[in-house]
């Protein structure tokens, strides 16, 4: 369910009532959240919550605990909560991750020290509220590379056949779930929002190297532009950030190579 607080400006309690007792084996952690409510705040602010978490909890569970039992005004996206839909991308302890795929036990401080987990919205996109960002610039870049099958001539009477080897050529880039972890980890995108960004290039790569597609030239021309692949500085932030393990920088380099060696 997507819970929405009835009174977003004053509510200080959770949307599901009081905090339940700490479960057995749980540890006290501090969740430090980067918050912004455009109706109240003029500037973003930090807010810390002391809650109990199991080592097997995901970061998303901590956000649920806060939203459901402590502060119902906390706003974030999440949908499937199992790392498939890609809606809960956020900056966790300074790196872009899906909140539903990071376990608390991997964030615990070394023995005896208190654990603080810092959560911020993904960087480089306008923040609407708390951890919820406006994805429009990201999705506009995605649309600009024509991420759909382009063919010319007559439709075949059967399905378009492809060999296993041809399918393998672009297999890595088919895994993208458009969570924006890569694009919002890119320093070039942070300072220059007109750069297409890794995710758009990954999705262009998915069609450029598809043997059934005939629009590669168009897409390569789009990516040959000032805001295209030549903006990439190969910092590998995108590859580190991708929750699906896509070799993003490699895909960008393959597009560069395709541009360099096309007829």
């Amino acid at each position: 369910m997507t819970a929405v607080a009835e009174n977003p400006t004053t509510s200080a309690s959770g949307s599901r009532g009081e905090l339940p007792p700490a479960p057995e084996g749980s540890i006290a952690v501090t969740v430090k959240l980067h918050r912004f409510n455009p109706e109240v705040d003029s500037e973003p602010r930090w807010e810390s919550f002391d809650i109990h978490a199991l080592p097997t909890d995901r970061v998303l569970n901590l956000l649920h605990t806060i939203k459901w039992y402590v502060d119902g005004t906390l706003t974030f996206r999440r949908s499937c909560a199992h790392g498939v839909c890609g809606s809960d991308a956020m900056r966790i302890n300074g790196v872009n991750r899906l909140a539903c795929k990071v376990l608390v036990k991997d964030l615990l401080a070394s023995k005896g020290k208190h654990t603080t987990i810092t959560i911020e919205p993904i960087k480089g996109l306008p923040v609407n509220k708390d951890l919820l960002v406006n994805m429009d610039p990201f999705l506009d870049a995605f649309k600009a590379v024509k991420p759909f099958l382009i063919t010319y001539g007559n439709e075949p009477t059967q399905e378009r056949i492809q060999s296993a080897a041809d399918r393998e050529r672009f297999d890595d880039t088919t895994k993208c779930i458009l969570c924006a972890c890569c694009t919002t980890s890119c320093p070039v995108f942070w300072t220059e929002g007109t750069y297409f960004g890794p995710a758009a290039i990954v999705n262009a790569h998915r069609f450029i190297f598809d043997s059934r597609d005939e629009g590669a030239e168009e897409r390569l021309d789009i990516l040959n532009d000032v805001d295209g692949v030549w903006r990439c500085r190969t910092t590998f932030n995108c590859t580190d950030a991708c929750p699906r393990g896509i070799q993003v920088t490699k895909a960008i380099q393959e597009v560069k190579r395709a541009l360099l060696f096309r007829r």
Partner: peptide
């Protein structure tokens, strides 16, 4: 024929 833009960045 795709509109060949400038190759300057390349």
């Amino acid at each position: 024929k795709p509109s060949r833009r400038s190759n300057f960045e390349l």
